[in-house]
Every structure is written in C-alpha cells, then in structure tokens.
Design a protein around this nucleic acid. Structure first.
Ligand SMILES: [Mn+2]
Ligand SMILES: [Mn+2]
Ligand SMILES: [Zn+2]
Ligand SMILES: [Zn+2]
Lengths: 141, 141
DNA sequence: TGGATAATTGAAAAGGATTTTCAGTAAGGG
DNA sequence: CCCTTACTGAAAATCCTTTTCAATTATCCA
C-alpha cells in the first residue's frame, strides 16, 4: 500500500500517511535544491490543493527528526531543507542556481590533530560545505 | 580621542562614535563566544543603561559590514555574532560552553580537486567548522 | 567655544516568519 | 464499516527583526 520509502519510515515511526504528508514528502524527495517552507508549500500545493502552510512546517519537522531531510545553511537565511544522504556527508552548493550535491569522503584527520593539539579541544564533529558554480551555471552566461 | 581600533574603523567609514556603539563594540570585542542580539543587548546595557535593542541590531549590522564581526551558524539559530579574524578563517566551537576559537590553515585543495572533477563544479569557497569540547569542559564534570 | 546640521537614537508600530489553538476531518485498527 | 484519535487548515498568538518618527547629540565650522 505504501510504496515510498520515506512514507514507510513515517508509518514505521507511528505516523499516519496522509495526502498532505505524501505531497510534502514527494516534493522533498525530488528537489535538486534546498527549499524554504514557502517553496515547499507552493510546490506541494500542486499535488494537494488544500494543503496548508502549517502542515508543511509540521511535516518538515517530522522528516527532519527522522533524518530524511536536513537543514541547509546559507550565509543568511538558514531555513531551507534538503533531502539528507546516508551517514556523514558534505554539501556542495551552486551559488547561482542553488543546486545541491551531497558528497562524502574528506580526510581531515591531520587537521583535527593539529587543531586539537594547538587548542586543547577534543574535536568531535565537523561541518564542511563547499560553494561554487555547477557545470550548467559556468557555461550558460 | 578614539582609542579603540574598531571605533576608529567605524569613524573612518564615516560613522559617528556614540555611547551606544561604544558599548556594543566593547561587548563584541571581549566576548569569547558568539552572542545573539538579545545577549549583546543584555551585556551592553551594563555599559550604557539607556541602550535600545534596535540600536544593537543597527550596530551589529555595521560591524558585520566592516568585517569586524561575523555571523556564526549553529545547527538551529544562525543569529549569533562573533568577532572576526583577519582573512579566511575557520571556527572551532565548544559544544558545552559555546566558547569559540578561530583558526586558519586547512589544506583542502586535494579535496576541491577531487570533488570538482567528480561533479563538474567550479569550487569557489568553503565553510568549515569544527565542534568539540574545550579543555575546561573536558575536565570539569 | 558655541551653533548649525545631519546622523543617530529609543519607543512604538509594522512586518514576517513560525508556532499554538481549536473545532472539524479522516486514517486505519478492530 | 465504525470508533478512536491523530491529523488537518484557518485564525490567532508569538517571536524576532525592521521601519518610522520625533527627539537627541556628535561633529563640523564660524
Ligand atoms: Mn567530513
Ligand atoms: Mn579554509
Ligand atoms: Zn548552478
Ligand atoms: Zn546557519
């Protein structure tokens, strides 16, 4: 009956599958870039005309709690959401079209060691985002 | 007359030196951690009792524009400000006491090259933040 | 050293985004 | 199918930030 892995996860977590959640979920799953709540609302309303903005907020909150989407921080405004990958990942963001790509594999151990020694900190995690221009945005214009 | 480098910079940029700006500036200069506008307000009011929150916002905006302070992003809330260092820097944040340390020198060129090749992106900048426990927070408790 | 002048201020109002409340609706277990 | 209770959208409430505005004051110049 439930054909979608995210919806299955919602259901497994004890939530009900509704038209509203289906719409928001599908929008988030198919977006190439991070979306603000209003953008999600606009896109999801094409799938469920009666959807309310409040429900978008509530659904995003649940998807985030389940680790299916993540919050993406830009220099200002940090209220955009993007599908999350499995495990530890990093983000590569196009400054022009906002396309987002997840990648993994950085080797920062030497850096952690150096900084840890210099500062006395015990380093536990990190956050790395790259910004640039995607291929399309380099060429056209 | 003006004894403080940040105030000198404000003045050089054509702004006037006022009690309000002096208070906000001194708070930001002496803070070991990123502060929200309200936290700045509370701290700065100890130096200038009549200070208004609006002026805190306006002063932070100017200090940021001059590159003297920077916005710090935490997982939620991204409205905290911290003194900025010179040039390109990274942040090391204590998860317990929120102390912030600036450091420089990471060698991510190999990573940029790899990711650039795999994705077709032209990488232009990056953001790196480390999280952990400062020395004091490791020991006490 | 005064005044003139324009920048700056704080309070109040406006604006925007997010959260809460609530009565009606509908998912899904039995 | 029903019943229960989670879920919904609309409206109201909140919270944070920005704008407006009249009063104040830093700085320039006579
Ligand atoms: Mn990593
Ligand atoms: Mn760097
Ligand atoms: Zn692009
Ligand atoms: Zn942020």
């Amino acid at each position: 009956m439930v054909d979608n892995p995210w919806l299955e996860q919602l259901q497994a977590a004890g939530y009900r599958i509704t038209a509203a959640r289906r719409a928001v979920t599908e929008v988030m799953q198919s977006s190439e870039r991070a979306l603000t709540p209003i953008e999600v609302y606009d896109a999801a309303r094409k799938r469920d005309r009666r959807l309310g903005l409040v429900t978008v907020y509530r659904t995003l909150e649940k998807l985030e709690a389940l680790g299916l989407i993540q919050r993406v921080h830009h220099e200002h405004s940090c209220q955009a959401f993007l599908r999350a990958g499995e495990g530890h990942q990093h983000l590569l963001l196009c400054e022009r079209c906002r396309r987002a790509i997840l990648f993994e594999g950085d080797d920062l151990d030497a850096l952690f060691e150096r900084v840890g020694e210099e500062t006395g900190f015990e380093i536990r995690s990190h956050w790395l985002q790259l910004y640039g221009l995607c291929w399309d945005c380099q060429t056209d214009s």
